[in-house]
Design a protein around this nucleic acid. Structure first.
Lengths: 209, 209
DNA sequence: ATAACTTTGTGATAATAATCTCTAATTCTA
DNA sequence: TAGAATTAGAGATTATTATCACAAAGTTAT
């Protein structure tokens, strides 16, 4: 069920950054890049880049570096981004709407294909071509589109219910934007993204000095 | 300039979670909570809760626990949230618009007071009472509202420029939503939030199994 | 061909963070 | 009041993650 080796979650985040740089380099016609080039572009150390890549194999040539396009393809494969992923959004509020309009997902192969909400006034609305369906339609849509990923974009008070519904519909990877700890079975992947908390890292550091 | 002790950044994120639970508990009339209560509500271990708090002092009573409201107030003070923070958003696109409408910021004392964009068509528009100003107005608005925090909500290609402009205007805490590594002087606080990368943690784990 | 240089991959080391374990303070029960 | 139960705090331990340092492999210049 899980990977052979335990890979630091920070490594996965960095691979994502590396891949963006590599795509950019390839687009600019840069054929080979060194761990130092990658490091400087992404704000880490060259040793960190090499160590991160070493978890997955040997992709470079000593004395030379890495082939931009090849390494890009390897990383995208590692991240599971060598294909498109349909995504369901729960919650047709401002956040749900924004996520539907956000171009950054499509660039990485994420295709938000439906939004779900209980508010009858919102059913049938369209956010950038993404239609709003009633929650009751979730299970069917998940089956039809083979959706594996879901995003919770509802208030904290209904986040657990949203998660439960998604799991019942057989979604097994969830991003939770609600500022509450949602409890799920251990075979479900869950990540919490707390937008306000991001600002709080800054205010903590700015406070008192 | 920086804190006496180096506190793990993960601790700050957890304090934010603890404070939300404590507020909730206090609202429900729960006077005392134990590290176990906090831990269960936030998905960490009791020892972790106590260790996190121990960085900042002794807030509890042995055999009893913590006073919900008092501990809430302590944590909010630690996070610098015992006051309101004006915030500038750079970029009046979908993301900028969504951030202006997002209720979760106000709940924690963040007040998005202006949005800035170079597109003349967007100047004067209003996102939930937040007016869009030209980039040239940034410096003046920062001064008038005493803005210390800014959010980059522009495409990757103009993220560095946005950061440079903010720094010139004397903003010193930045959240970057653009999927690119922005380079800033070390006395500027910067955090990157990559929404697509959040989904990639999931696809990485779902891939191949 | 040789020497100087570049760069990867990796084992060793250091730094950081989480967990464990125990003691001390407090409350509850009989 | 004595004993059992609860819980915070903190030092010690363990686990995790990042950095260092260097050998191996490749390139370039002469």
């Amino acid at each position: 069920m899980s990977k052979k080796f335990k890979i630091p979650s920070a490594t996965i985040g960095r691979l994502s950054m590396y891949s963006r740089y590599l795509k950019d380099a390839d687009n600019k016609g840069i054929v080979t890049v060194s761990s130092r080039n990658i490091a400087e572009a992404t704000g880490v150390t060259p040793a960190q880049v090499r160590k991160d890549l070493a978890y997955f194999g040997e992709f470079g040539t000593r004395g030379v570096g890495y082939n931009s396009r090849e390494l890009y393809n390897y990383i995208m494969k590692i991240l599971g981004l060598d294909r498109s992923w349909p995504v369901a959004v729960i919650g047709a509020g401002n956040l749900g709407r924004a996520l539907c309009h956000y171009k950054g997902f499509a660039e990485r192969g994420f295709n938000i294909c439906c939004v779900f909400d209980n508010d009858p006034n919102k059913i049938g609305e369209k956010f950038a071509d993404v239609e709003v369906f009633p929650m009751s339609a979730l299970e069917e849509k998940v089956k039809v589109h083979n959706i594996k990923l879901g995003i919770i974009a509802v208030p904290a008070s209904s986040a657990q219910e949203a998660a439960d519904n998604m799991i019942k519909a057989r979604i097994n990877g969830i991003i939770n934007f609600a500022p509450i700890n949602v409890i799920v079975n251990e075979n479900i992947l869950l990540r919490r993204v707390d937008l306000a908390a991001q600002l709080e890292y800054l205010t903590y550091s700015l406070e008192d000095n």
